[in-house]
């Protein structure tokens, strides 16, 4: 931290400038988070009309619930698929954008637009295009003999469809970051490591990927967090966690337990588990890359 540019002395003024930010953070971030810890020790009926202290019962319930185990498994598997899929494609596209000689800004805008794509829109559009009964894309997929694209019934298929939508939506974000990282690679450094006579993709793998690995590490964490939290609209609009729990991500289960089944205590315990997961990811990221901040919070 640089300390020697101190320009003003009145530390009361500093307090005034910091106050709004701190007030918002305390009221809307810290206080509810502590409340979550407290609530996770209670059982509730109908939106907290009646509460009973139950100690760690809610956590025991989670630990022994096959449904919850399923959600944990589905969430981690989903994150893995989304992270790998989205980063691989984004890396390829970003690299080509980096290398392209003409019309760069046109390509750029045409490639990063999914950054602005609202998840709810992504979900609605693909719900329709991939609809088992009337989707255009489904129609052509099912022209392949023997293929039935009924992801309303087939669990793994539903998982796959959801992953495709999640990857699609995240491409813009990843491309933006990777492109910035590629541009930050000093030309000379890339030049000196340029291996003669190798294909461009080998260059990417052998030269650029190691150089931008801090960004890749950062994106792995960001995309994992995205896959855990920001994919709620996809589940809610496309599968409602089904069929038979195949897409019941932790965030969706949490929402349902809280706001559909009125188990606020249990849902709070689920929040605590999610908090644990985010903390570990953030720590890992800090260890990996030190300085990056979290976008989108």
């Amino acid at each position: 931290m640089v300390r020697d540019i101190r320009a003003f002395d009145d530390s009361r003024a500093a307090a005034v400038f910091l106050a709004p930010t701190l007030a918002v953070l305390v009221l809307f971030l810290y206080y509810p988070s502590f409340e979550t810890f407290r609530l996770s020790l209670y059982e509730t009926l109908l939106l907290g009309q009646q509460t009973t202290f139950v100690g760690l019962d809610n956590f025991v319930t989670l630990a022994t619930s096959p449904e919850y185990h399923n959600s944990l498994f589905v969430s981690f598997a989903f994150a893995a698929v989304v992270v790998v899929g989205s980063l691989t494609i984004a890396l390829f596209v970003a690299y080509q954008l980096y290398r392209v000689d003409k019309w760069r800004s046109i390509y750029l805008v045409a490639a990063i637009w999914p950054y602005a794509l609202p998840p709810a829109v992504a979900a609605t559009v693909l719900l329709f295009l991939l609809h088992p009964n009337l989707g255009v894309i489904t129609h052509y997929i099912e022209l392949i003999p023997g293929v039935e694209f009924d992801w309303f019934t087939n669990g793994p298929l539903a998982f796959g469809v959801l992953a495709v939508v999640a990857i699609w939506k995240q491409l813009g974000y990843n491309i933006v970051f990777l492109l910035a990282a590629l541009h930050n690679v000093p030309e000379s450094l890339a030049e000196t490591s340029r291996l003669d006579g190798v294909g461009s993709l080998t260059m990417l793998r052998e030269v650029y990927v190691p150089l931008i690995s801090p960004t890749l590490g950062f994106l792995v964490v960001m995309d994992t967090i995205y896959a855990f939290f920001a994919t709620f609209p996809l589940v809610d609009l496309m599968t409602s966690g089904g069929p038979n729990g195949a897409t019941n991500l932790l965030i969706f289960k949490l929402y349902r337990d809280a706001f559909e089944f009125n188990s606020l205590g249990l849902a709070s315990a689920e929040s605590i588990v999610l908090f644990g997961i985010v903390s570990i990811l953030m720590l890992a990221q800090l260890k990996l890359t030190g300085e990056y901040a979290h976008y989108g919070a």
């Binding site: 930010t21 701190l22 509810p32 709070s268």
Partner: peptide, 26 residues
């Protein structure tokens, strides 16, 4: 100062889903 800055940064660990129920009641 460092503590306060850390206090600000730590909120990165608290995305909406972690505090959704109490935030709603708040």
């Amino acid at each position: 100062k460092d503590a306060i800055f850390a206090f600000v940064l730590l909120t990165l660990l608290l995305p909406v889903p972690v505090r959704i129920v109490p935030l709603f009641e708040l």
